[in-house]
Simulated assay, not measured.
Amino acid sequence: MATGSKKVIYAALAGNALIAVTKFAAALYTGSSAMLSEGIHSLVDTGNQGLLLYGMHRARRPADDNHPFGYGPELYFWSFVVAILIFAVGSGVSIYEGIHKIQDPHPVTSPVVNYVVLAAAMIFEGVAWYIAFKEFSVQRGTRGIVQAVRESKDPTVFTVLFEDTAAMLGLVVAFAGILAAQLTGAIWLDGAASIVIGLILAGTAVALAIETKSLLIGESASVEMVAGIRQIIADHGNRISSINELRSLHNGPHDILLAISLDFRDDIAAGELEEIVYALERAIKHQFPSVRRVFIEAQSVYRHAQIVGEEAALENEGKAG
């Protein structure tokens, strides 16, 4: 797993743990619902970073008989769990607390304490956000932010970036809600800020769930990588008639499974075919180190099309049934 990803998570973990304790202390002292929601937010984020580290640890386990392709997808699973926790705990509790405060309003005491805590939190969160964004920028290269998130195979960095962005927005909302309640005397605005924070968390959770779900059910290698692999095969074109099929699957951010069906020339001896397969596998892994396993099948175009047709027929029968 990339060292940069761990650095991002550790920075966020340390910052959120300190901020959570400070926010809860301020919420208990002042009675602010918005501050309590922010404390819950930071506590959930702290737990989420712990889950991401746990997922990274589990994903590094070597392959065994029960999991012959390794445990890489565990990282995607725990990233999806993080999205669920943000929605269920962070968003749910914040919205509940906000509604409760609106129904049973009580003044915020010593609002200056909240302002100081929020200002300090903005500094800590800002540093964590910068570290996450810097690492994300390295990974995305020249791509746009939305495109980079959609194409990223490493959920750790963009998960922390999403969380930190939501945290910054939540701090601004909490500050505005407490200030508005103090200046206008409308105590319910503190509760309204808590609801808005909950909605921000809900939106963040939905976005993360969509991205991590796609990774969890299986994404292919990048278009650029697939094109590069096809070019490697094309370099052996005098002995390969055609590519019947090329399938790739990410088992982890840096763990790709590759399956290729090739139609070799009929006049190639078995020994020569074996050497070609060996040369192809070495060339692919050398150019693309993330490709951990390569399976190359020798099959005629006709027989491959026949099998594909039979599979399609069976699938249609299943749908009809």
Rank of each mutant, 00 (worst) to 15 (best):
Y71F: 15
M168C: 06
L215K: 04
L258F: 01
R230V: 00
V138D: 03
L189C: 09
V157G: 02
L85H: 06
I95K: 06
A14L: 13
G218V: 09
L257Q: 09
G228Q: 13
E97T: 15
G126D: 03
L208N: 07
G126H: 10
A283Y: 03
V294H: 05
R58W: 08
E38A: 07
A234G: 02
T184Y: 02
G4A: 15
A34V: 10
S94H: 08
K23A: 07
G191F: 08
R230A: 02
R293V: 03
N16D: 06
H67Q: 12
D154L: 09
A27C: 04
F133S: 06
A298R: 13
P105R: 14
A221R: 10
V93M: 12
I229N: 01
G170Y: 08
F136T: 02
G141S: 10
S300F: 06
D263P: 00
G191V: 03
S222T: 15
F69S: 06
A283H: 08
N114Q: 06
Q299G: 00
I240Q: 03
P73H: 11
R303S: 10
D104W: 08
H41P: 04
K213T: 11
S248G: 02
K7Q: 09
A26E: 05
D255R: 11
I187T: 15
T156F: 01
V82Y: 11
I187C: 00
F80E: 01
A166F: 08
I123A: 09
G98M: 10
G4T: 09
A166D: 01
S37Y: 10
H250I: 12
Y29C: 04
M35R: 12
G90V: 06
S137Q: 14
P68N: 13
G318T: 12
L169E: 01
Y302C: 02
R230F: 00
V81I: 15
A34E: 05
L51E: 03
M225H: 07
A176K: 05
R61Q: 14
K285A: 04
E245L: 14
M35L: 14
G31E: 01
A11T: 15
A193S: 14
G252T: 12
I145W: 13
A167G: 07
E38P: 02
F124T: 12
N114G: 10
Y10G: 01
